[in-house]
Nucleic acid binder design. Structure first.
Length: 270
DNA sequence: TATCAGGCCCTAG
DNA sequence: CTAGGGCCTGAT
């Protein structure tokens, strides 16, 4: 077990922010996360966090996953004090981190996310994992399921994932899986591309438009300049940034600001 | 019953 | 290039 005191890190906020659909609260102060094939439990009281894993796994995997080296305090410090809306949003969600998640998993998750709500996205992802993921054992000896590979999902017929409640998104996932599995899309290459190039490449995938591509860029590739615009963000932009979001000022950290706004719009009281 | 949820595809004009 | 209809499904 690893114990750390961490500023600007709040599991509840990260969990609810909807970047990760396989993180959940399992007790008052305790959360579980499944990332790719890895399982972790974390306990948090105020700033003190207990990661239930070996030090090596923490250093090599979870520290990166949670972006614990990122300086979120500095980002918040960059916010225009006259922008009271963003100041409030950032104060409200100041424990959010932009996770570094597995690329393939994010592609599928955000293909599913369209015209969908967070709780149903979670169920869809869980269904896919339980049906097609690798069965594994957590630290308590309980079973959990890893995220299925593209090769496995590429074997399915286009409508097969309707059984996992994907609805019309089923063919998006299956066709994309085929594209990745046959080598038409090279995820290794995508992961080394700069933002604009990666975004363009991701948008070639069937079912992926600007919003989905930006979510993947932000939550998997850690391109912090990506600013996904969904219905909530669109509304916020209309009511608070009629002359457009100040991209210049927040160059390279728009994605972090997007998360503060998104989280505030969904969970802040207004 | 109608509308909406972290959109995108496809077809017309 | 832009506009608009269609799409699975569950919650309200």
């Amino acid at each position: 077990m690893i114990v750390k005191k961490i500023e600007h890190f709040n599991l509840e906020q990260i969990c609810k922010s909807g970047q990760c659909f396989r993180m959940k609260q399992i007790a008052d102060t305790r959360y579980s996360v499944i990332a790719g094939q890895e399982y972790l439990e974390v306990e948090q009281r105020e700033k003190e966090c207990r990661f239930y894993c070996e030090e090596e796994t923490f250093e090599n995997f979870w520290k990166l996953y949670f972006d614990l080296e990122g300086d979120y305090h500095a980002c918040i410090g960059q916010i225009d004090p006259k922008d009271t809306y963003l100041m409030q949003a950032a104060a409200f969600g100041d424990g959010i981190r932009i996770l570094k998640q597995e690329l393939w998993e994010m592609i599928v998750s955000f293909l599913i996310s369209q015209q969908n709500n967070i709780s149903r996205i979670r169920k869809c992802v869980q269904n896919i994992c339980e049906n097609y993921g690798e069965k594994r054992m957590n630290l308590h000896g309980e079973t959990y399921y890893g995220f299925p590979t593209a090769a496995v999902l590429a074997e399915l017929a286009e409508d097969d994932l309707k059984a996992c409640n994907l609805g019309y998104r089923s063919k998006y996932v299956v066709r994309t899986a085929k594209s990745v599995a046959c080598g038409e899309t090279n995820l290794e290459a995508v992961s080394t591309m700069p933002y604009d190039e990666a975004r363009k490449e991701l948008m070639k995938l069937y079912g992926a438009g600007e919003k989905v591509a930006d979510c993947v860029c932000l939550f998997a590739l850690h391109h912090l300049q990506a600013f996904p615009v969904d219905t909530h963000i669109s509304q916020a932009l209309q009511s608070h940034y009629k002359r457009g979001f100040p991209n210049r000022r927040y160059e390279g950290m728009q994605g972090i600001m997007q998360q503060y706004i998104f989280y505030y719009e969904l969970f802040g009281e207004k």
